[in-house]
Design a protein around this nucleic acid. Structure first.
Lengths: 216, 216, 216, 216
DNA sequence: CATGAATGAGGTTTCATTCAT
DNA sequence: CATGAATGAAACCTCATTCAT
């Protein structure tokens, strides 16, 4: 008694933009915007070149769509998770970072970071948008957690921005590196091993003395 | 009794390749390899497009030269400094990182990092070379220092690679970001403020208990 | 006792080709053949692009149909009117010209003239057909009237072709101009004012002295 | 002792824009703007497609250049001639028209008239410019001559605009026709025969009675 | 050595035409 | 009959590369 599937043609039609954007993301990350040919994007999505233009007005528009549609949903989801754990800043920070790695850094989405790093100069408006809508919000989340930790005496009272960068940049860089060196026979440490040491050192460095004892 | 300077015309002639490479580095970093036009490189170096081909066989060759010539000299220099300070791993590590920022990260050379991140996929052989000749050697230096520190009981005995990334990636990311977001009205913290907090947290996290006391 | 109208749906179906041809004529006149997109023709006729192909085999065929179907009926009608007035060449000529303006020059049909002028080079066969079936017959009508007038001593015995062009080209040009400069805020003289002066000068120039006196 | 010719390469370079514009004019007139391929323009000018873009930014820019550069010089020249003959309006009018035919209507330049008629709808700004800079000035010249003639009692006092159209449109139409039907085996009357009858009828129609006697 | 005009392969984009629904 | 998604040939345009000067 479940509703009938839509006819096959229709289903494809609705899925097309997402399929095309996914194919484009892969290639943009792999080769960069300018070096990616729309022929290849279309081929990877299994359609002809002309079909691309049924869904995107231009190569630029495709780039915009790739960036804007791929990352926004995640931020909202993350913002929701903050509430549930606001009483335990250390655990919340750990969770945010591990979660980011699992949901973004280690997936194709992580490629958007490399992509924006590479193309910000060529797409100033997209970069500005990304800066505000993605980076800014994400930084605000992290900074908020850190500030809360400092306020509760859990984290040491040091410069929040530096702390945020020290907490986030290593794994961001890991993601960027991963997108960049995909074909270099690059092997990265297993996440579990990595994060064990990572948080060991990070928290030893940033936790206040009292909190550290509690942690132990 | 030193030899007289060559006449100015000649000096320019000899400087040409370096001037062209510098112009190319700027544009490659700014726009990426594919989106950079040789017209613009030549214009920025103040010569005609044809002149480029007197010194570089192709656009690819120019890219290779930019990468290979710009970073190699530095590594050698750094390797030399290691010897002088090998008895004080903490100070040595701090010096390596600050020095890297001063000599690379905060200069146009820092752009090569962004450039390789962006173009590794399109230049596998150059990326492999860079990986070995630059990244590999630099990582070996850092790892060596860290291992020495661990061996002497100065650093805590944790996974060296993770430690290296935690020590280096934040400032590497800062350099990459700087190259990328050049026109976004980006402002970064002053190096002094930054490094104060940076090493405070980093060393607290990685120094062994005894060394920490000594430090304090 | 006339047969009932067909149901509305059916009527539309039968009217489709004419509606499409009308829409195509407008756009061909406005933009030219090559610059007119079938999407736009279909949209202006209120159908989908695919529907066009139910009635016309190709864009070329549509062009042919537009030309051939739009002008032929008129010629026959005009030829009939000639008979009724063959005794008064001056009045007949005046009537032909005024009538042409009212029925063709000042209506969308006048656009076909501009269209053929624009596209003759791209459609040699259509142009040849148009030349023979429309221009030729129309010229023959005018020339016949003029020759009759000369024979009767009403018109001065000068070169008939030149006379025909002097009589027809100014108003043909008016029609072409009208189709061409539609959006330039062009204003043309009122037909009545125009024709008063027009025939005043034209007949003074071409009427034989005796006829002129009679006219006065 | 004449100055040396410029080197061959240079001479070609200076002539290129004019050669390209001439080739483009021919093809635009022949096929229309949209149906003309830049490949063909380049081929007709004996250069490669890329060379076109050294001199014109786009196909549109080429169109603009063709229109704007080809007709302007003539107007100025004509305006100068007016002065010399301002005492004899009938002769001046005749000379203007014959001269227009010799210098424009019967040459490739006459094609611009057909071209503007065809493309005005697609290039509103160019059409507006042409209307003002070419058509307007030319009409002003003709109207001025006619008004002068009327003022002196040489021409009959009828509507000047209609008179202007009757005087100019037949030969304008001849030029347009010529450009349009170039390949239709079209044969036009010899100019001499044509103009004899033309002015005979025209002046009989528009000259005042007294002037007519003087003419005879 | 240095120039910059010329080239043409290769990319983006358009649109007439087809065909499954 | 009617639709509109899909196609791919062909157009415009760019730019790395060459070469006569």
């Amino acid at each position: 008694m479940k509703p009938a599937d839509p006819p096959r043609r229709q289903r494809r039609k609705e899925a097309r933009p997402a399929e095309l954007a996914a194919a484009a993301l892969e290639l943009f990350v792999e080769k960069g915007f300018a070096a990616t040919r729309l022929d290849d994007v279309a081929a990877r999505a299994g359609v002809s070149k002309g079909t691309l233009y049924l869904y995107f007005d231009s190569k630029d528009a495709l780039f915009r769509a790739v960036i804007e549609e791929s990352v926004l949903p995640l931020i909202a989801e993350v913002e929701a998770r903050i509430e549930a754990l606001k009483d335990d800043p250390a655990r919340l920070l750990r969770e945010l970072l591990v979660n980011w790695w699992d949901r973004v850094g280690s997936t194709p989405l992580g490629g958007t970071c490399k992509l924006m790093i590479s193309e910000a100069g060529n797409f100033p408006e997209v970069a500005a948008y990304y800066n505000e809508a993605v980076i800014g919000r994400w930084n605000a989340l992290l900074s908020g957690v850190i500030e809360a930790g400092v306020a509760r005496g859990v984290f040491r009272p040091v410069n929040v921005e530096v702390l945020r960068q020290m907490a986030f940049y290593p794994i961001l860089m890991r993601a960027v590196w991963r997108s960049s060196m995909t074909d270099c026979g690059l092997t990265q440490l297993e996440p579990d091993v990595y994060f064990d040491t990572y948080f060991d050192v990070l928290f030893r460095g940033m936790l206040a003395a009292s909190a550290e004892e509690a942690q132990a």
